[in-house]
């Protein structure tokens, strides 16, 4: 199928973009990298009246360090993140996850802000943001607003973002020397959406402290497993009984199945990815 008939705007500044978004009653849809929105338009799952193309907004294409924070503009593409020394050194969980994001030609266009704003429950970025306690900076005509990743993701394609707001950027706390990170996902083909995946951050791993364990591809949003975190807290790295206890403490009642993968299978796969991510930290 082909995309519906649409109008097109290509603002040159963020101020112009948010002015367009606050405009009258038209259904305006920001277009970032388009690697999810374009298929959704082709399938007529998305039928906006006006596309607001963000690709001319050079002011949203930056990666910078401000004290202990790595600040990433929403229009930074996956390939740029993958090649960034700042990201590799200070946001290593992101670097672990990026090779799993689709394929090279898609990573050349797809953006971190687009994935964040879309909030696909099977996508890697929302889970990484949540595992790192990142802060999403939204912008509208009333100015910027900061939203924690815990509050931002609310359901399938549901976020705390208002209709008149854009994701401006994302702030990540720079990793400390003691912190460790793990990431693992199972997909039918490398680069496809995950059947189950997990992003893990820990303040330390021997013993495990301050864990954040976030599953993706298993529920309607990135799912934090606080029971599994509690099971591991205080035990030593690779402690088999603690890992087994964590595997058995997953929030299985919040899991949802999808086409071809039942809830029971997802729970089993989640146990597998959790163990593999923990052992590789």
């Amino acid at each position: 199928m082909k995309a519906p008939d649409i109008l097109y705007e290509c603002p040159q500044t963020v101020a112009e973009a948010v002015a367009l978004l606050s405009d009258d009653g038209r259904f305006c849809q920001p277009l970032a990298g388009g690697q999810s929105l374009m298929p959704m338009m082709h399938l007529r799952l998305a039928q906006p009246e006006v596309l607001i193309d963000l690709n001319a907004l050079a002011e949203l294409d930056f990666i910078e360090q401000v004290d202990d924070t790595i600040h990433v503009g929403s229009m930074v593409r996956y390939t740029t993140l993958l090649n960034s020394e700042l990201i590799r050194r200070h946001v290593p969980l992101m670097s672990l996850s990026l090779p799993h994001v689709a394929h090279s030609a898609v990573r050349n266009r797809g953006t971190i802000g687009g994935s964040t704003a879309l909030a696909d429950p099977a996508a890697e970025m929302p889970a990484v943001l949540k595992a790192l306690n990142a802060v999403i900076v939204a912008v509208s005509q009333s100015g910027p607003r900061e939203i924690s990743a815990d509050d931002f993701f609310q359901g399938i394609y549901e976020t705390a973002l208002g209709d008149d707001e854009l994701v401006h950027s994302i702030k990540f706390p720079a990793a400390t020397d003691q912190q460790r990170f793990g990431f693992y996902e199972l997909a039918r083909r490398h680069g496809d959406y995950a059947m189950a995946g997990v992003a893990v951050s820990a303040q330390s791993i021997n013993p495990y402290t301050g864990l954040r364990i976030i599953f993706f591809g298993v529920a309607d949003q990135p799912l934090r497993a606080t029971g599994a975190e509690a099971a591991l807290e205080g035990s030593m790295f690779k402690d088999e009984p603690a890992i087994l206890e964590a595997q058995n403490a997953l929030p299985a009642d919040e899991f949802t199945g999808d086409v071809g993968v039942s809830v029971d299978t997802k729970v089993q796969l989640a146990k597998v990815v959790l163990k593999r991510a923990l052992l590789a930290m």
Partner: peptide
């Protein structure tokens, strides 16, 4: 898949106007 400004992209996931 084709090349736009030196990088490989999906020709179906980009509008001609872009």
């Amino acid at each position: 898949t084709l090349e736009v400004d030196g990088v490989a992209v999906r020709g179906c996931l980009m509008l001609a106007v872009q």
